[in-house]
Amino acid sequence: MKKGILYLNQFFGQIGGEDKADYAPAIKEGVVGAGLLLNNLLEDAEITHTLICGDNFMGSNQDEAVEKLLGFLEDKEFDIFFAGPAFQAGRYGNACGVICKAVKEKFNVPVITSMHEENPGVDMFKKDVYIFKGGDSAAKMRKDMPKMAKFGNKLLKNEEIKGAEVEGYYPRGIRFEVFLDDETPACDRAIDMLLKKINGEPFVSELPIPELDRVPIAPAIKLADAKIALVTSGGIVPVDNPDKIQSSAATRWGRYSIANLERLGNKAEGAFKTIHAGYDPAAADADPNVVLPLDALKAYEKEGKIGSIHDYYYATVGTGTAEGEAKRMALEIIEYLRNDGVDAVILTSC
């Protein structure tokens, strides 16, 4: 028999109403209040413990609440964690999201909650937590709890998960390929979508355009004093590619000294080349400075146009490179740039 733990607020944990919203974190053995329903719905698992915390306590003392609640769990064995449902209650929704995320990070078990679409907790935590689409008030308990339990049963039995829409949780921004059960080929899906679009009927795009992550243009700096670094996704590396950066879909990057160089030597000289598989390498192999313009930057330095050049350059390959990997690599590179007091970066592609 698998084991689960449930988080409830003071109200659903039967401590009391709004007057008990400051109730400090507690753990109780077995099921309390709404937990009874969940326990009955789980097929091959039982709720062994219930965590309870007042919504205001969590709201005003979040770090302390989380620390205490996680502390209660340290000596417990459990396979799954539930919270709520939180319906449209904003503070409760936040609490469910906070504790689910923390439990997932610390204990690496699946975490499940439920909220109404207008609960602010949905947008705050849908990327980290399975949040099921729930009703707006406690009157929907008998509808919402079974959805959580059903999915929990599925996870515990390692059954195939069919995606956010089919299962009923909010999309988490995680996209994977699936084979369609009905095997409708893409051409037929396209014609069907096109006819609907022509006729003004509703249709569902298979790739909804996500919100764009735009970076504002940074404020200007004084170039004459600035330390400038060169970073490239154009795949310029020492000829032996010491960090084995991949030619496409890169997950690796390298940091290479240019401290004593006036310009980058080329492939024939055994110095630098490109490993980028997304463009014709001929020009970059003959003169890597066309992708990583060290020669031009050195000239600026001599003219006094810029203060200095950072002693290292940073390189990866930007073809077929997942945007998430690119972001991670950038954050890793930024640490070096910050530590070395770099003021500005010239980012070149290919």
Binding site: E165, R172, I174, R175, V178, L180, P185, A186, E206
Partner: peptide, 14 residues
């Protein structure tokens, strides 16, 4: 991925 039309695959939110 048979983008010319034969693909029986799609990509879904998980």
């Amino acid at each position: 991925d048979s983008v010319l039309g034969q693909s029986i695959k799609t990509v879904k939110e998980f």
